[in-house]
Design a protein around this nucleic acid. Structure first.
Lengths: 380, 380
DNA sequence: TTTAGTAGTGAATCTTACT
DNA sequence: GAGTAAGATTCACTACTAA
């Protein structure tokens, strides 16, 4: 039983409970059809805990693209990703972000995922609307699509923004859960997660049900980090319902918005099959650490071996020079530490790390020694 | 000596050289003092190859507010809020980006580095100004500062934007050098590089000379990837001159802008000590694109492949005969090595050099092998 | 049953030079 | 400027087939 005198704190809590919308009145576990801005307008102010949004990226692709083997790349050419200008895309972004901000509780938070095509528009606009960025998160893909024409760097990541309602706003962060998930080290702002394929990728008649389905591991980490059990999560661009599926699994409530009938159907079927995890299973988590693989070029770049350094095999049959990009030059022949070693010996393969040596204080040391030094230096 | 007839390519190059500003008239190897916008105004249009910028982001995004000129805004007398603060920062960003765009050559490029505090402003504005983002690059720090209070994810990365002058603009990318630097795999958009500390970190009286000194490895990769030897690199926020030091080492020209006397002094001392690498060390692996073109007919002409030789694909689905003019014949079909390969496969395109093989001492070799032999033979 | 090899594919702003 | 031809270009992973 409560004490007779109500403290200020208790009064405030009661008052906020009285004005708060009982979550049972919300369309929990439903996918609202039609435009997401209209759909969100049907939800009351300050009623949900989290908005996770995967809006169209506005890719602006040119013509067709073929792989080196001649096969065709199945690109995202859907009508929903087409915008006539940045101005129109910005307007669209302002509208859905404004509704998202309205329905979020004062201590609620926003997540948005995007690529360089759209994320700078989204980031600037959400700042303009008063959202306060807490982190930007890099999803590092283990298996991205390569750059087939060799024209740029492999686009191997996407960006997520995590923002609170404002500079002074409260928000939720399950610090310990994240630390546990990351082998007792603080979870960093770069997450290594494979793209969604294999059994997880939803298919309809043998082809992918949605061109941009996100991996469940990504949503799992987002929801575990920034929501509590029972929280209400809204996804304005629901697609095939990854957010809903993971929310159900983790004991969170969800509401989706999706314009396309087909996606709504696929998502509902998917989420019905999903089973909530029991408490004990929630505690068993694991993650993979990034492998400490080192490219020879990284040593050159970091100055551990300077361009111009001479390297040689143990019997000094060959002497080569290190070049600026980490390649070796021996007479007219050039190549990587492995490739050139292989060529010169006429061997089927060669481990350049142990084949080539450099002189350090009068002593010949294998390149592998420099690699060890480099690893020691970058580990902390 | 050049041939009598000037090709179109040669004429265009000569013409562009006539209008181009001789780089010797630029203030190469100098640090311009004062505001970077004013400093850049002293440089001619379309005169530099690369702008690398590490702009400040602590002007006002948080507690204190400083004007772009460095003067402090008194919060008591100058009423301001978060929105004013973004507006001031945006204005400052538009000004320096506009000058950067003006001084860049049509095939020049821009790099900007920033964190979530400012990079979304910068990214949106540079797109508004017509820059075309080529990649966003994540600098993943091996040794970031932990989040001491456990309130967010460890902020373990910064973001770089690489942009050309426009959607259709040309730009330079040393694809093969990057691939070599990364152990024969395409360089990705996420770069693992340690933060700048230890011996590399410049100190004045025991304390760090500059709060945000960037690692040389980062600039090394940027300059190696997107400039050629002799190119002119401008850094509008020069600080302690990491860009200048690495540019000098890699045989690139540099111009800095820096407002603070102290930093100019530290940077000049630092760069004077830096030694350029010698010619041979600066060489990088060249892509086939940069190699001189060889017509298949030239190989036939020179006797590297005799007319009548049989050529075939790896699976020997098709066998064709080399004709005297360097065309191929397969049954009733004829064409160039590329055209016939394309026709037979029904493929969108075909590289005849790697598709067709010939037999040499019982071993099937691609036509490309003969091309390599030919190139070695004619080189000297 | 196991292994080796082949085919397929993923949010992609993906060529250049000449006629 | 449009059209054409030469020719340069891929990583990780899954699923299936063949031996």
């Amino acid at each position: 039983m409560m004490g007779v005198v109500e403290t200020t704190k208790q009064r405030v809590r009661r008052a906020s409970k009285l004005v708060a919308v009982p979550k049972e009145t919300l369309p929990l576990g439903q996918i609202l059809s039609g435009d997401c801005v209209e759909a969100m307008r049907s939800l009351p102010d300050a009623s949900v805990d989290l908005v996770f949004a995967d809006p169209p990226y506005n890719l602006q692709l040119g013509g067709d693209l073929n792989r080196p083997d001649g096969s065709h790349v199945d690109a995202v050419t859907d009508h929903w990703d087409q915008f006539d200008s940045f101005a129109i895309y910005d307007q669209f972004t302002r509208e859905w972000l404004t509704e998202a901000k309205r329905i979020l509780k004062p201590d609620g938070a926003l997540w948005v995922i995007g690529s360089y095509h759209n994320i700078y528009r989204v980031g600037a606009i959400l700042q303009d609307l008063g959202f306060w960025i807490l982190n930007d998160i890099v999803w590092r893909k283990t298996n991205p699509m390569p750059n087939f024409r060799g024209t740029r760097f492999t686009n191997a990541h996407e960006t997520l923004l995590w923002a609170s309602q404002g500079e002074k706003a409260k928000y939720h962060f399950n610090y310990t859960a994240m630390k546990t998930l990351n082998d007792e080290l603080q979870m960093r702002s770069d997450w290594v997660i494979p793209i969604c394929n294999g059994a997880e990728r939803l298919k309809e008649n043998g082809t992918k049900a949605h061109p941009t389905q996100k991996p469940e591991a990504l949503l799992y980490r987002v929801l575990l980090a920034t929501t509590e059990k029972g929280d209400v999560v809204v996804d304005p661009f629901f697609g095939t319902g990854t957010t809903g599926a993971v929310a159900k699994r983790l004991g969170r409530e969800w509401i989706g918005c999706e314009r396309e009938d087909v996606y709504r159907g696929v998502a509902m079927k998917r989420i019905e099959k999903e089973l909530p995890l029991d408490e004990s299973a929630l505690k068993v988590m694991q993650s993979k650490r990034a492998a400490p693989k080192v490219a020879f070029g990284a040593l050159v770049e970091a100055g551990f071996l300077k361009p111009g350094t001479e390297v040689f095999d143990t019997k000094r049959r060959w002497v080569a020079t290190v070049r600026a990009d980490g390649s070796l030059e021996c007479g007219k022949q050039t190549g990587s530490i492995h490739g050139l070693g292989k060529e010169l010996q006429g061997a089927p393969s060669c481990n350049g790390w142990t084949f080539w040596h450099y002189e350090d204080e009068g002593v010949a040391k294998p390149l592998d020694a420099a690699r060890q030094l480099y690893l020691l230096a970058v580990e902390d």
